[in-house]
Every structure is written in structure tokens, then in C-alpha cells.
Lab assay of single mutants.
Amino acid sequence: MASQGTKRSYEQMETDGERQNATEIRASVGKMIDGIGRFYIQMCTELKLSDYEGRLIQNSLTIERMVLSAFDERRNKYLEEHPSAGKDPKKTGGPIYKRVDRKWMRELVLYDKEEIRRIWRQANNGDDATAGLTHMMIWHSNLNDTTYQRTRALVRTGMDPRMCSLMQGSTLPRRSGAAGAAVKGVGTMVMELIRMIKRGINDRNFWRGENGRKTRSAYERMCNILKGKFQTAAQRAMMDQVRESRNPGNAEIEDLIFLARSALILRGSVAHKSCLPACVYGPAVASGYDFEKEGYSLVGIDPFKLLQNSQVYSLIRPNENPAHKSQLVWMACNSAAFEDLRVLSFIRGTKVSPRGKLSTRGVQIASNENMDAMESSTLELRSRYWAIRTRSGGNTNQQRASAGQISVQPAFSVQRNLPFDKPTIMAAFTGNTEGRTSDMRAEIIRMMEGAKPEEMSFQGRGVFELSDERAANPIVPSFDMSNEGSYFFGDNAEEYDN
């Protein structure tokens, strides 16, 4: 993207840094990872977990959730003011799984939030270390993106479920800051804005008074975040219109849905970061690795190297396929839920299948599930090659597409044709070009129609051997075009429920 120079890199967003050079960025990201790792080690000690239990991804998720809940100030305040039966607002906890007599047992633990905050700050040299908290939120978000298709949420806001490739980060909490905003897809931002506008339509006082002023500035800020994701002048001009509207209503909703559809071809720039579970960072720190000293990046080879040398386990339900569970977590670790499966298959070195073909449910185990038949197995999170994460949407291309997802959002900077089903997408653009945004709409449609099938995206960008740390010898991959490109292809993934 041309304006790259004016933006802070995501590592800076990730670490609240002012302008830093590459070495400083690597050190501050490393410091953040160190903090998460030290916190995780301490929690495993508190909970008396064995090494194996500490490497269980379900335990990692519970521990991450506990610290996120302990620092969720708004919710904590709300819980104190609106006490609900049987919930102690000062405590947080969740299921911890232990191996007892050759069987997995679930144990519900409860801790004072104050105590968890103390352990977290102690692991982070006394700081609140917001960057580390956001990092864990993005890992949870990436896992949700890989596990669930947001059909219901899309339909509720009037969008087409086939636009799911635009929904990265749709389950990120509001408090995820600049680093969170960077990884949100165009569809996620559109959905947040539509929800806001709908509230304004239904509630006369939404934009009024002292609160209304705050609401208005939040609305304009979200519009600017979305505008910054678009790469064409016409899309940005249309966002200006939406932002400046005196009284946002149905016309703005129409414009936003139009823009979301246009992003299936004229893709937005959305950041991709490899955020790993805390149970990967903990053992690495415990083994003596100093992330701050060595430096770390979320968008280069580092996460690949770390996963190459990590042992992570997962509980497996009786009829689940461990290899499929591994694929789910591998995609989440690489922030690749909406990437082209052919690119992923090449990088991973084994075939990556669409969601609907995987015999696996989510990673988390519900409290009512029976533990008797639970097994555990090693997650295979290694890769054959590594590639640089991208934040450009890439230019655009036609490809055989599917009944489910009709476009992709690249996660890796790797040369390819970008699949999208042009006739299906263009069919949504018939007729409606009147109104105050008509010239911009016409211009956007013209650009979409001009998108050429034979153009290559990320020209000359390749993948790298894991021994090639400096990215000196790019390998331009070859793809098996007979395979499906979309992950949520004609899909039956479970729906995400809060």
C-alpha cells in the first residue's frame, strides 16, 4: 500500500510504541512475548500442572481467558453494579484439565481477579502490559475465525453469508486497541457500523446529549479505520460520505453494504499476525530463551520457528480426527482463516481442507461434555516452508469459486491468482447506482469489472525454506488448481455463540 510509510507498523501498534527502528520493534515485541511466557509459567505453578498438562491447549485457553477477564475493567465495573446470582464479580476462573488415573478430569478453578492481575503485572515488570493482553485477544479471535462461520451475524446486519472472507476479527472485544483495529476485516468494521446506525434509528437519543457526542466521535473513528483499509480513492470518498452524514440511517447502511461487497474484489488491507497460545510461549521462556534479547516478529519467520520446536497437546472428542484438529489450530496460529487453501497447503506441506470436510468441533470443551471418553493427542503445528504475512489485500483475480465463501483475504505475501467468483459478486451490483453516491458507485463498479483474471497478485513473492531466515531465496510455489480455494466452501461450520 502506498501510504505504508505514514502508518505505524503493526509491531508498533502491538507494543504501543512511538516510531521505533526494526531492532527496537523486535525487542519490544519480544518483551511482550516474554511477559506472556513468564505469566503462563507462574500460572502453571499456581495450578500445580504437570509439564504435559501445561502444554494442553484447553488449559492455555482457560488461563488466557482468566487474565483477560481480570483486566476487563468495563465488564468488571458492570458486574459490580449489576450483581447477578451466583456470579462473584471479583473472581474469575474456568475449567482446568488434569490427568488422573490414566483419565482426563475437569476441575473448575476460581481465583481472585486481583490475584491474577498481581501475577500478570509481576510477570511483566510491574506494568499492565496491555500489548500482551491484546495479543491474547487476537489469538482467540484468530481461533474463532478458523472455527466458526459468522453466517447468522452477517444475515442479521443485512449482509450476504458468502462475504465471510471479510469477517476477520469479528469476535475481537471493543477494547483491543490499535492492534485489534489493524486485524479487523472490512466486513467486521461494516458490521460494527451498521449495528451502531441501527441503534440510532431505533433509539432517538442515541446521537443526542453528552453521551451522543461520545457516540458520534466513536462512529467517526470507526469510519476512519474502515476508510484506511480501502485502497481505492472511490471507496475512500464513499467512506467520507458515510462519516460526514448528519443523521446516519438506511442510506448509510446501503452504502456500507455496497462497500463491503466491493471489497470482495477491490480488497481492503487487513493486517495478519501470528499470535500463538500462551502454552507455546511459556515452555520456550522456561527453556531459557530470551525473546527480548533475541527479538521477535509476528509477521516473519519467528512464529514458524517457534511452532517448529513446540509440543502442544489437545483434548480430542471420541469421533474427532486429531489431524483435522491440528489443521484448525495451525490455521489459527498463522492467522489464515480466509487465505486461499492452495497457498496454505503449499506452505504447510500437507493438504489443507475446507472447514466442512474437517471432523472436528471447536477447541474448547463445553462444561456439560462427558470427560470419560476424552483422549488427548499432539497437535501437528509444523510447516514445510515459511512466508511473510501481508497486510495488503493483493490485486484481484477471477477463479472458480464456491457456493460458500466467494473470495479470499490473503494472509501471506505469496504470488498467486486470487480466487473470487466474479459473476456471483457482480450480480449483486445491478441497477442500484442512484442517489448521492452514484458517481462513486459507478466508478467502483467500473474498477471491479476491469479486474483481470490473468493478473498475478504479489508478483514474484515466494515462500522460503525454514533454514532461509533472511528470506534470501524465494520459492514461487505451484498450486494444484483442481483443489478448492475457499475454506468455508459450501460450508456447515458451527455458528459462533458468545
Rank of each mutant, 00 (worst) to 15 (best):
I347V: 05
K229H: 11
G460I: 09
T360Y: 07
M447E: 04
L79C: 02
E449D: 13
T430A: 12
I197C: 05
L264E: 06
L110W: 10
G5V: 05
C164L: 06
I445K: 03
R461C: 12
R8Q: 13
N202M: 00
A123H: 09
R236I: 07
G126C: 08
G126A: 05
T151C: 10
T146Q: 12
P354L: 08
L49I: 01
L133C: 14
I253K: 10
L61R: 04
L379H: 14
W139D: 10
R174K: 13
M447I: 12
G431E: 06
M456H: 02
T396L: 04
P83G: 00
F230Y: 05
V67M: 07
I63D: 00
C164I: 00
K227E: 14
S170Y: 11
H135T: 04
A237P: 05
R204Q: 13
V186K: 03
S402C: 03
A234Y: 02
D16V: 14
A337I: 11
M239A: 00
P477L: 13
S402T: 05
F230M: 10
T378K: 04
S262Q: 07
R75D: 11
Q4P: 01
R361F: 08
R195S: 06
A218K: 07
G200N: 13
I138D: 09
Y496H: 14
G282W: 08
A442Q: 01
R400Y: 12
L298R: 09
R204F: 01
S486Q: 13
C44N: 07
Q231N: 00
S170Q: 07
G17Y: 09
L193Q: 06
E434W: 06
R156F: 11
M32F: 07
D101Y: 04
I197G: 15
N21A: 07
R99N: 14
S287I: 05
I201C: 02
E455K: 03
S310L: 12
Y148M: 06
S297C: 03
R152L: 04
N76W: 00
V414M: 05
P423S: 04
E24L: 00
R121K: 15
R195Q: 05
R441C: 09
Y97G: 05
Y10W: 15
D127S: 15
K87E: 15
V299I: 10
S326G: 15
R38A: 02
R216K: 02
T188W: 13
